[in-house]
Design a protein around this nucleic acid. Structure first.
Lengths: 130, 130
DNA sequence: GGAACTGTACTCGGATACTATGTGTCCGAGTAGTTCTGG
DNA sequence: CCAGAACTACTCGGACACATAGTATCCGAGTACAGTTCC
């Protein structure tokens, strides 16, 4: 079990967007260069973030991506959920009664991690990265 | 990102072994039937647990698997690490300076989850499952 | 001078290919009890 | 009766096959801006 590289790219891209805070959108090429990813792949990741409403895209010349209003409150968990999906990490597929104790424990531990990720916002990260 | 099915099988098998608490080893066939897995696949999972010293195996007739001494203190994390490996969930492969803030945040959140999983022991689970 | 045309620099999204990993099966080898056989 | 051989029920571990998901590329389409042409 590991986070996908896409999640890593997404987090870094969001940070880059937040740090640059220009009013103009930033092209996918620029963003891709900063991480040594192919632009086309990064654009696929970005469309997921757009669909979640964290990022807006502008087509055409001088186009690119920029953060939407209220980005300061976007948490790590939001970004991770956008890329990895919202389903829980552990699912006991066995049909041995309705309440699987193991499932319960796993879910609780997962919740602890998500709590922490919910506390960490983009804005907070920008603060410490300056 | 998801836990593998193998982890699920491992957790349930450990619970089964702990619940049965017979002095004689239990055959892999019996264990497999309880979860609708193929015996050969389950044996692969069990060998990982054997290598970590949580389970001992007895060959030959009337052979099988049984928990080792001190099993009461085995935690969920121990079992998960045995199957999934001990490496951390997130690794920022980018070479943008020595201390990646994102990596730091991710590691901290992961630590919260592991803390919880370390607290949950097999013995505790048996208690609530009776 | 202004409307239409052209070029350019972008994003968007589907199709496709490659790769890694998880999942599962097969089979030969080794091991330890159990039963059978022969003296 | 008893020692040794044959049998049987297991685990062990490597090799292999398959499915799925992640990673990455390619390309045609759409879009908006800037410059050019032409009346």
């Amino acid at each position: 079990m590991k986070y996908s590289k896409a999640t890593n790219y997404a987090l870094h891209t969001m940070l880059n967007l937040a740090m640059s805070n220009s009013s103009k959108p930033i092209g996918v090429q620029t963003l891709a260069e900063q991480q040594n990813v192919s632009p086309t792949y990064l654009s696929k990741i970005l469309t997921k973030l757009v669909k979640e409403g964290m990022v807006s895209s502008v087509s055409g010349a001088n186009g690119g991506y920029s953060l939407t209003k209220g980005w300061e409150s976007i948490s790590f968990l939001d970004i991770i959920f956008a890329i990895e999906g919202k389903s829980s990490l552990f699912e006991c597929g066995l049909d041995h009664g309705p309440h699987c104790q193991i499932q319960k424990v796993m879910l609780e531990s997962e919740e602890k991690m998500e709590e922490e990720l919910r506390r960490q916002t983009l804005a907070g990260l920008v603060q410490t990265s300056k």
